[in-house]
Design a protein around this nucleic acid. Structure first.
Lengths: 207, 207
DNA sequence: TTGTCTATTAGACCTTAGGCCAATATCTAA
DNA sequence: TTAGATATTGGCCTAAGGTCTAATAGACAA
């Protein structure tokens, strides 16, 4: 949406390079928050969004690639653009395999950096949107009782109430009640919507 | 499945390197089919599968990266492993961005090549499986008449027959008939299955 | 011209789904 | 012990889905 409010995190130990890059990015209309080490960045409790990370590979404490790995492990899906003065092909390949948006050898063109940032921010917006949606859906589904969840899985499998009752060892009447509550609690008005909802949070159909 | 029958295509102009690589891969139990130029590879009418492509970046006719691009344009989803003696970081990054499985600077370890091939073949199997499934589904859906397709889209949106009839300017009866035929032709027994089917071939719900 | 495919509609009939009200039983937390 | 959540079932009634038979009509191909 409003990209002028987007944040670009920079983790770079070379002070002069960091500052000049900072100025450059600010000039493009982004907010910049910089760090001179990986750990000081990790100490950040809260990340803004949309945002992306401009990351130097060689750092005093943690290697840039290791930081990338740590973020993935923690489930932080912040798009990363690597910068490096002494990179190698295997290094760049590894970074890209793990989902980096780009890998820029210093010195690089301002245009390249700018386009990489735009791509990274777009990706962040995309991811956040999906994550947000999945979160909202999960919170709805968490309100279902165990029995209701069971019915949900059979319903999205396409089974009739009668069949569900058989498999669950109960009566059709009971299934109907559970089913009705599932529809209420998940706020959908049709099985089709329910199936789509379940897909988004990867609830598999029952056996 | 049976990886011993997998094919590895090699496109490499350096004859000695090509032959030694060929031997190496054959020793791992794969079939190898090699070419000394991109065009001779492109002339191949039919690709085997599972398979992957070991591609040199610098070639006499077409650049390896351009070949990758051409394959993508043609909708050929063959996993590619690049090899190169004079590569650069931007080159490897570009290749990876476009979906290469790996990018190996010569000389590389046999182990690396081997693991890259295994990953590439697995990816190919995955892709083929999905493509095959999508193809089968599309062939089912192609047998639907225009009117039936229209009904299909409304059904997977979760609309009632009555509502569909309104929007299509016809009667509920007619919708029921179309709907019944859609279920028959697509061989599903429930709306839930139909929704899942449509998802797999990316048929969007109606407005 | 004839025949097939497609689209449309009707009527009859049966099955499913879903909502409303009421009641019972269990279990847990306050 | 009591209130609340959960699971269960029944009866009753309406709406919606699904199938079958049958008929009409236009488009297109042999």
């Amino acid at each position: 949406m409003n990209k002028s409010k987007a944040a670009v995190y920079i983790v770079e130990d070379d002070a002069s390079f960091r500052k000049s890059t900072e100025r450059l990015i600010r000039a493009s209309g982004f907010d910049v928050i910089s760090f001179e080490s990986a750990n000081s960045f990790l100490a950040q409790a809260h990340l803004r969004h949309p945002a992306c990370l401009l990351l130097d590979v060689r750092l005093p404490d943690i290697d840039g690639l290791d930081l990338q790995h740590k973020l993935i492990e923690r489930g932080v899906s912040l798009p990363i653009i690597f910068m490096t003065g002494h990179g190698s092909i295997p290094m760049s390949v590894q970074a890209m395999k793990k989902g980096a948006v780009d890998f820029l050898p210093k010195p690089f063109e301002v245009k390249e950096l700018h386009s990489a940032i735009l791509r990274a921010l777009e990706r962040d917006i995309d991811i956040r949107k999906k994550e947000g949606k999945a979160k909202r859906i999960r919170s709805l589904i968490d309100r279902l009782t165990p029995r209701e969840k069971e019915v949900l899985r059979w319903v999205i499998t396409g089974k009739l109430n009668k069949q569900i009752a058989d498999r669950m060892g109960t009566t059709e009447k009971t299934v109907k009640v559970h089913r009705g509550r599932v529809m209420q609690k998940t706020r959908v008005k049709s099985v089709a919507e329910l199936v789509r909802l379940a897909e988004k949070v990867k609830i598999p159909p029952a056996v």
